[in-house]
Each structure stands twice: as C-alpha cells, then as structure tokens.
Amino acid sequence: MGTTLHYQVHGPSDAASTVLLSSGLGGSAGFWQPQLCALIAAGHRVVVYDQRGTGRSPADLPAPYAVADMARDVIEVMDATRTTRCHFAGHALGGLVGLQLALDEPSRIAQLVLINAWSKPNPHSARCFDARLALLGAIGARAYVEAQPIFLYPAAWAAAHAEHVQDEVDHAFAHFPGEANMRARIAALRAFDVDARLGDINVPVLVSAAKDDVLVPWTCSQRMGDALPNATLKLMGQGGHAHCVTEADAFNSTLLDFLSRPSA
C-alpha cells in the first residue's frame, strides 16, 4: 500500500520491534538524527516521516485541521511500511499525535514516549504561540524561523552551537511550509485537549521533560505522569524544549531502557 507522505525506514528489516518517531511543529524526519544510531544499534527497526504539509510531504492542509488528522497519517505510514504495531515516540506536537493514536488505535501502539508534550492547553504556551504568529504575520517567515531556537534550546547550548543553530534556521527558512500551513498546524495543537481521557490510555508511557523548557511548562508532563495509569515520568534539569537533541546521550539512555521493558 502506498502513501502520499515521505517516510524512511532504518535498521534491520527483521527486527522484533519497530520504533516510529514523530517530530514536533517543524514536522521533519531529520529532527530524530540524534536518536537513529542508538535505536538501530539496539536492534530496532526505525520509521521516520515528514508530516503532511511539511518538508518532503507537501500538501495544502484542510480546514479545519486537527491532531486527529495527523494521527490518521501515522496509520497510513504504518500501513505503507507494513508495521502492524509500533513503539511510538513523539516530540511536543508529535506527542499529541501519540496520545490521539493511543486513544483511537490502542492495538497499534505497544509503548508511548511523550517528550515535552501536553494533554491540554496552558496560558504560557499560548502566549508563546501568539508571539510567534505575530512575527510571522507582521514580518514574515524569516523572522519566524530566526526566533525558533529561542523556544527550542537553552541559551548556553545555542551559543555554544551557533553554527549548527544557524544552519537549522537557514534550512527551516528554505523549506518553510507556508504561512497557511503553519497557522493550521498551530491551530490544531492549540485546540488539542484530551486531559479528561488520560485515564483511558493503558499502554506503558514514558513521559520525558526538561525543567528549563521555555515553551511548554514541565508541569504539563508532571500532570500526564500523574494521570496516565501506566506512566513513568523522567524529568531532566536542563536541555530545553528539544532536550532529546541537546542532551541526546542522557535521553537515549532513558529511551532505550524504557523500550527494553516488556509491553502488554
């Protein structure tokens, strides 16, 4: 079965388990580069994809657009890669997609990893998105992507990796999905609220957050850790919103330990 989405499959084709990785607002499969080698070395088959309307999966997004639409795209990728069941890891928006999948298609999810995600809106993140959308509307895409590292990375890490950060910004600008798509994606994540349904998610869940995340309060992860029936909460003191990138070794160790546990 084919798919209109761009995806890549890494690692052994005969692996006992598949890990499917879903990135945040940027939507790019390339976000997971710091995890690929560790997962493959541990024997996992890994699927990454560009989300609809981003990167190598160009599309005009429908209105209204919702996280449930993004979850259906994951099922499309799973079917195209002959993945009956997967360990799903999502960063921020990707974590929301994972929560939706665990509610809509629980038999397809063996374990769930939520990285700086949330189960309901909060006023601080809303303020951040308001500011980003104001930049996009008043100045344009270049200003929007130049501001992105402020929300992703701790200041000291961004300063120490200035060339890498600038390369990311330039790449994001060159592949910007367009203002309409970006607004539709942000509207979808801002409308997402499954907080009252967390108790219905019974798969094992790793909830990972960094306390210095400036975009999403770590207390959102604490909330999910308390409400999910089968959750493990891992809080890191530093690393920012993208702590799976800035503290990749520590994050990968936690991830592999979690994935090695038996799932129901």
Score class of each variant (00 low, 15 high):
Ser23Val: 09
Pro217Trp: 05
Ala63Phe: 10
His243Phe: 13
Ser17Asp: 12
Val194Arg: 12
Leu135Ile: 02
Glu247Asn: 11
Trp218Arg: 01
Met78Val: 02
Ala172Asn: 14
Met70Thr: 03
Leu215Phe: 10
Arg45Ile: 08
Met182Pro: 02
Ala117Gly: 14
Arg56Pro: 00
Pro34Ile: 15
Ala141Arg: 05
Glu179Gln: 08
Leu20Val: 15
Gly27Ile: 07
Gly178Thr: 05
Ala126Glu: 09
Leu233Asp: 01
Ala131Phe: 06
Val67Met: 04
Gln222Phe: 00
Asp213Gly: 04
Ser28Asn: 06
Thr84Asn: 15
Ser28Arg: 09
Asp104Ala: 15
Leu152Arg: 04
His6Asp: 11
Ala66Asn: 10
Gln35Leu: 14
Arg142Asn: 08
His10Met: 08
Met236Tyr: 13
His124Tyr: 14
Ser221Leu: 00
Gln8Gly: 06
Asp79Pro: 03
Arg190Ser: 10
Glu168Tyr: 12
Val9Cys: 09
Glu168Trp: 13
Gln166Trp: 02
Leu96Cys: 08
His10Lys: 08
Asn230Ser: 05
His124Gly: 06
His10Phe: 11
Leu99Lys: 00
Ala210Gln: 06
Met224Arg: 02
Gly30Ala: 13
Ala138Trp: 12
Phe251Gln: 07
Leu136Phe: 02
Ala126Arg: 14
Pro262Lys: 14
Leu21His: 01
Gly55Pro: 08
Thr4Pro: 03
Cys244Trp: 01
Ala102Asn: 00
Phe258Cys: 06
Asp69Gln: 01
Ala41Ile: 08
Ala71Ser: 03
Pro154Ala: 15
His175Asp: 05
His91Asp: 03
Asp193Met: 07
Val169Thr: 14
Ile150Asp: 09
Ala71Arg: 00
Val19Ala: 12
His10Val: 11
Asp60Ser: 13
Ser17Cys: 04
Tyr7Pro: 10
Gly240Gln: 11
His124Arg: 07
Val216Ser: 03
Arg72Pro: 00
Ser221Gly: 03
Leu61Glu: 07
Trp218Pro: 02
Gly24Gln: 13
His161Gln: 11
Asp193Val: 07
Pro12Ala: 15
Asp60Gln: 13
His91Tyr: 03
Thr81Arg: 03
Met182Asp: 01
Pro177Ala: 07
Ala227Thr: 09
Leu228Pro: 04
Leu152Val: 03
Trp157Gln: 05
Ser125Asp: 03
Asn252Pro: 11
Ile201Tyr: 04
Val214Gly: 03
Ile115Asn: 02
Glu163Gly: 11
Gln51Asn: 07
Leu61Thr: 10
Met1Ser: 15
Cys220Val: 00
